[in-house]
Design a protein around this nucleic acid. Sequence first.
RNA 1: GGAGUCGUAGUUCAGUUGGUUAGAACGCCGGCCUGUCACGUCGGAGGUCGCGGGUUCGAAUCCCGUCGGCUCCGCCA
Length: 592
Amino acid sequence: MLDHLGQTKRTHNCGELRKEHAGQMVTLMGWVNSFRDHGSVLFVHLRDREGITQVIFDENHNLELLTRGKQARAEYVLAVTGKCVLRDEKNYNPNMATGEVEIIAEELKVLNDCQTPPFEIDNCKASEELRLKYRYLDLRRPEMQSNFRLRHQLALAARRVLDEEGFYEIETPILTKSTPEGARDYLVPSRTSPGKFFALPQSPQLFKQLLMIAGYERYFQIARCFRDEDLRADRQMEFTQIDLEMSFVQPDDVFNVIEPLICEFFKVVGIEPPARPFPRMSYKEAMNRYGSDKPDLRFGLEFVDLSAQFEGGAFTVFAEAVKKGGVVKGIVVPGAAQWSRKHFDEILELAKRYGAPGLAYVQVLEGESKSSLAKFLGTDGINALIKTAGAKAGDAILMIGGKWDVVCTSLGAVRLEVSRRENLIDENEYRLLWVVDFPMFEYHDDDKRWYAMHHPFTSPIDEDLDKLEGGDLGSVRAKAYDLVFNGNELGGGSIRIHRSDVQAKVFKALGLTEEEAREKFGFFLDALSYGTPPHGGIALGLDRIVMLFAKAKSLREVIAFPKVASGSDLMTDSPSAVTPEQLAELKIKTLV
RNA sequence: GGAGUCGUAGUUCAGUUGGUUAGAACGCCGGCCUGUCACGUCGGAGGUCGCGGGUUCGAAUCCCGUCGGCUCCGCCA
């Protein structure tokens, strides 16, 4: 039989009672975390958001109440009133914050019962699939509740810091206009304009720029963004950004807002904040030294350029690569001289997945070193190589030669894999940096045209403005920057174009005719011409920030109701079919 | 779109070379138990081996297909 809550009021939560409370009458409400029935005495651990407290039902104290208490099962919802008492010292439970006290039940209300849960909340060993199907149960687990407390605290800190810095929080539309650049849009059919569609925003990009044009000077929003692309452990189709924009600024001004904000996050989680200013590295340098535009600086394995060693040499594969304008780069891996052939082969396979033509290596030994290159370079050549690379006995040098970007990217992947295999990452270290001076454009071989690397409203750096016309678009640098945290891209932004003439040149460079530009961004181009202040901003991935501070392996651990890799929601079983009537109303026919 | 990997009781897993009645732990149900907090103890129930097809005297096991989860490539800032 269930009881009504009635006028019973909770006096304390399940995490706050200490020995100072001994002697007080208290009322707790929560879920049965566990129970142990000893016949004439029953122990119940009652759990709520704040913690767990032990409640005792005792035959000598109240037989009728004990009998009723014994009906409780896992996850029943109880209201218990009783006296908080100090436990005998030998009965302290040091594993519980409330372990020095317990509640002797005087009154019990069973507010609700519970089916046998599909997995134990207290001791969850369930697969992620099952956890997601019963997400509301999964979210009861203290580990998950702690993730969402952290998420709340970080979002709150962001609001506090940005408010102190003079930012207004302003909402922008969720139903907006499809823009073909960038990621695939989620489309929403318009009933009132049959055959036409809204798009869900990939980011509030244009709206926040319009707010600058509108004179709001400093805007921020904790904004939901949508991208119809395949998911990853660190990528959901629907995610949250701390999005902001500022007027009359250069990149430094943005950094000077973001760095204190990030430091505040460290304070919230109780970790010593990193030193400021955060280091900065150009895109080119990051690629050259680490093979990534989001280098993980928690470990070394920096690239050594070995092009000069191979130029014109007997190892024709590498010599040819250099001759054609490519490079040969290597990393020195401590201890890897002992690796098995199989181990090297696995690394080679990885490099190939990233487009590397091959992978050469030298196993550096006390006496003669081992390498497949020995027959080309001779002992002297190998020794010279070892010296240039700075390798010691016991190390191995892994080398890739070819086109610059392929070498950097594939060796970067090798560097990361090696760091994992060799356990080179200190999980308690936090390394932040700004990656700056990104290329403005990147060339896509498949459709033979240039694309904006960031987005087409990014300002080129002043010195490169001239290069927009007449030529070498690949060398134009953008006033764009990414914030990188332990090898993860936490956010990115740029100073925007505020002049119509510059914007027109960029569109032209991207191959957009004036008519196309007008059709796609006409409203925005109009706005640009009405006194746009210089402005710029950034967006930080809130989910990723929470994930990193929570040391979670996937975004799904810090998003309350996430999608799985295939893009569906296992709890609601969405997406799902809709009725023919719904489609008819929208004038939509499906092809499947 | 592609690659790898996993799918057996409510859950997590084991399951030998293809062999007779598919096991364990936890959970669940019932009994006993006054100090447990991973309680203990006695007993019990619980299986479409993801699904479909094939090979075989015989399939959880081998083959083909398919569905679903995870990780990655492509894609994505």
